[in-house]
Amino acid sequence: METVVWARSDASAQRAREKLGGATEVLTDLPEIARRSTVVVEAVAEDAAVKGELLARIHQDLPSGALLATTTSSLSVTELAQASGRPERFAGLHVFNPVEKMDLIELAFPDATGEEVREEFHALCQALGKTAVEVPDVPGFVVNRLLFPFAFEAVRLAEETGLEPKAIDSCMKLGAAHPLGPLALLDLVGLDVAVAIGESIDAEVPARVRQMVDEGKLGRKSGAGFYEYP
């Protein structure tokens, strides 16, 4: 399966090429990528306006039979599908971090997507070596709707008891067979993204998490969160 990655600038394209190596083509010309594609998966910031604008741009140059998807983890797939201009060939395709270890893809569809297109998306997930499960188009789908209240409770537990993040994470990894503990997971997702997801599912976001975001401690991507990163 040929894969092409879009980068917003020459500088970001160069960084992506260095990270991905020569196996994946990285381009900055979005219309060219769209014209060449049979499937496009959008993965920009978790912001409805940003995603909607980009999806509409992609749709303009995408072949009529091509599939279009978003990786949103909390926004309305139906609303993004309408913004894209291609609701009948659209899906929410939610993958999980770390992607190389996590088998699941949550597939959420707008009502306009027919059975044949749904089958095409299931086949795509299978080709990617993943297991697809259709989920309702509700905030947080299934996993995030259950996971983030749990992760936020881990933050509150740390505050109430003084337990170190490593102790809480070790308990959940060894006692519940989680691949990552809840606090390490928040760092991986990004604390700013965690706040956005929490708000979208009406979960109570701990004040400590909001404070860390205000301080620029966003997790791995900023070098500091519940843990320090080199």
Score class of each variant (00 low, 15 high):
29 D>N: 08
31 P>G: 05
31 P>S: 04
33 I>E: 06
36 R>I: 04
37 S>H: 14
37 S>R: 14
38 T>C: 13
38 T>G: 15
38 T>N: 14
39 V>L: 14
39 V>N: 05
40 V>S: 08
40 V>G: 10
40 V>F: 05
40 V>I: 14
41 V>C: 12
41 V>S: 09
41 V>R: 08
41 V>F: 06
41 V>E: 09
42 E>W: 09
42 E>V: 04
42 E>S: 09
45 A>Q: 11
45 A>H: 11
45 A>D: 09
47 D>K: 01
47 D>T: 13
47 D>H: 03
47 D>F: 04
47 D>M: 05
48 A>L: 13
48 A>Q: 12
48 A>W: 03
49 A>N: 14
50 V>I: 07
50 V>K: 09
50 V>M: 03
51 K>S: 03
53 E>S: 14
53 E>P: 01
55 L>H: 04
56 A>K: 15
56 A>D: 07
57 R>W: 01
57 R>Q: 14
57 R>L: 14
57 R>P: 05
57 R>F: 01
58 I>M: 08
58 I>P: 06
59 H>E: 15
60 Q>T: 15
62 L>Y: 06
62 L>H: 08
63 P>F: 08
63 P>M: 10
63 P>L: 10
64 S>A: 15
64 S>L: 14
64 S>Q: 15
65 G>W: 13
65 G>N: 11
66 A>R: 09
67 L>C: 08
67 L>T: 12
68 L>E: 07
68 L>V: 00
69 A>Y: 03
70 T>K: 06
70 T>S: 14
71 T>Q: 10
71 T>F: 07
71 T>D: 07
71 T>M: 13
72 T>I: 03
72 T>K: 01
73 S>W: 02
73 S>M: 04
74 S>T: 05
74 S>H: 02
75 L>G: 01
76 S>V: 02
76 S>M: 00
77 V>I: 07
77 V>T: 01
78 T>K: 09
78 T>Y: 06
79 E>I: 01
79 E>W: 04
79 E>A: 11
80 L>S: 01
80 L>D: 00
80 L>C: 00
81 A>F: 01
81 A>I: 00
81 A>E: 02
82 Q>T: 12
82 Q>Y: 07
83 A>R: 05
85 G>H: 05
86 R>Q: 12
86 R>I: 07
87 P>F: 06
90 F>Q: 00
90 F>T: 00
91 A>G: 03
91 A>K: 02
92 G>C: 03
93 L>N: 01
93 L>C: 06
94 H>N: 06
94 H>A: 05
95 V>N: 12
95 V>G: 14
95 V>T: 14
96 F>C: 09
98 P>K: 09
98 P>N: 12
101 K>N: 10
101 K>E: 13
101 K>Y: 13
101 K>V: 10
102 M>Y: 13
104 L>H: 13
104 L>A: 09
104 L>S: 10
105 I>Y: 15
105 I>Q: 14
106 E>A: 06
108 A>F: 08
108 A>D: 02
108 A>I: 11
108 A>G: 05
109 F>R: 04
109 F>K: 04
